[in-house]
């Protein structure tokens, strides 16, 4: 159990999202970076759907109220417990009275704090993912108590994980979608040739892209019938400015979509910091299906990415944190 002392960015509970309710207008939601959820789950030996705390833009400080085990994944941050550094992409034991501090995101925008047993959060339409703008759940605030859902007692060893490579992608793969051909060939080619910049106006709903040159639009754009929207869609707003839609995107909309980013590239674009440059390329559906199948396979064998933490005495602040002696985990045992 943790108590929030301070929150520096935006943070909310997320799991793998809600399926089956889009007919009621509910977004899919869920963690922006599913690799980070899988990594946290592998480190703590639990389901990837266990609720984690997603930290956007910056972290915060947490008072540890009970001994617990946590994992840190997603965009790397400077992490410490009572000012002793904690390795990122790793699991750690925390003890009552520790002050956990997470700050300064380095290579991305979405970082995750996982708790063994999962965080306890209200379930709305079968998911604990918060979507405050839609009236579901709230952002984390100081003094919030972050409780554990399942009380898991059996000790497991601290581990580190080799993270999936997703932080420096520059070319994103798209498949054509039902509105792609509303754009003429010249516009599609210009879109593929254009280098875009990630704008700082981004949220869990979408990432705004900027570029030099004119916008991208279809004819009669303002009268197109509203139709289904899915995460990954690249939507052109009224002025022809592209937005990449993410997990919290609405279920319907009227602005046309030029294509859809394939699921394995979506965490990568969500993670890009402002001013990073990106380009897009269309790939065939067969190739996209093959990439998705490979991705699913690599997630199935994710535990192979886990190993015992580095035992380099030079880098060690505290031998106990690294379980140097016997790999045991409860220091109190």
């Amino acid at each position: 159990m943790l108590e929030v002392v301070s929150i520096l960015g935006f943070s909310s509970f997320q799991d793998m999202g809600r399926n089956g309710f889009r007919s009621l207008g509910l977004s899919r939601s869920g963690a922006a970076d599913y690799y980070a959820m899988a990594e946290g789950a592998a480190l703590l030996d639990q389901s990837p759907n266990s609720t984690a705390l997603e930290l956007i833009g910056n972290g915060g400080t947490f008072n540890v109220l009970e001994d617990c085990m946590v994992a840190l994944t997603g965009a790397t941050m400077l992490a410490s417990a009572d000012q002793k550094p904690l390795a990122w992409n790793a699991s750690h034991y925390l003890y009552k009275g520790n002050m956990l501090n997470l700050t300064t995101q380095q290579n991305g925008r979405y970082s995750y704090l996982h708790l063994r047993g999962g965080f306890k959060a209200p379930k709305v339409f079968n998911s604990c993912s918060a979507q405050p703008v839609a009236g579901i759940g709230q952002y984390t605030r100081p003094k919030d108590i972050l409780a554990q859902l399942e009380n898991k007692q059996d000790p497991i060893a601290c581990q580190k994980i080799e993270p999936f490579n997703r932080f420096d992608l520059t070319t994103f793969r798209l498949v054509e979608s039902f509105q792609t051909r509303l754009f003429n060939q010249e516009t599609i080619e210009r879109f593929i040739d254009t280098e875009f910049s990630i704008d700082n106006q981004s949220s869990r709903g979408g990432v705004k892209l900027t570029h030099t040159g004119s916008g991208f639009s279809t004819s009669n754009q303002l009268k197109i019938l509203s139709d289904v929207i899915v995460p990954g869609d690249i939507q052109m707003t009224g002025s022809g400015q592209p937005f990449v839609l993410l997990a919290d995107c609405q279920t319907m909309g009227g602005y046309p979509r030029i294509g859809c980013i394939i699921p394995p590239d979506l965490p990568a674009i969500a993670q890009l910091k402002p001013n990073k440059k990106v380009k897009f390329k269309f790939i065939a559906r067969e190739e996209a299906n093959r990439i998705v199948a490979e991705d699913a396979k690599s997630l199935e064998i994710i535990k192979r990415r886990c190993s015992a933490p580095i035992r380099d005495p030079e880098k060690m602040e505290d031998l106990l944190d690294f379980n140097l002696i016997d790999g045991a985990v409860w220091a109190k045992d």
């Binding site: 007919s23 009621l24 207008g25 009236g135 279920t251 319907m252």
Partner: peptide, 9 residues
């Protein structure tokens, strides 16, 4: 119903 929870067109 779409766009956001319970919203009618």
């Amino acid at each position: 119903i779409g766009f956001s929870p319970g919203q009618p067109y």
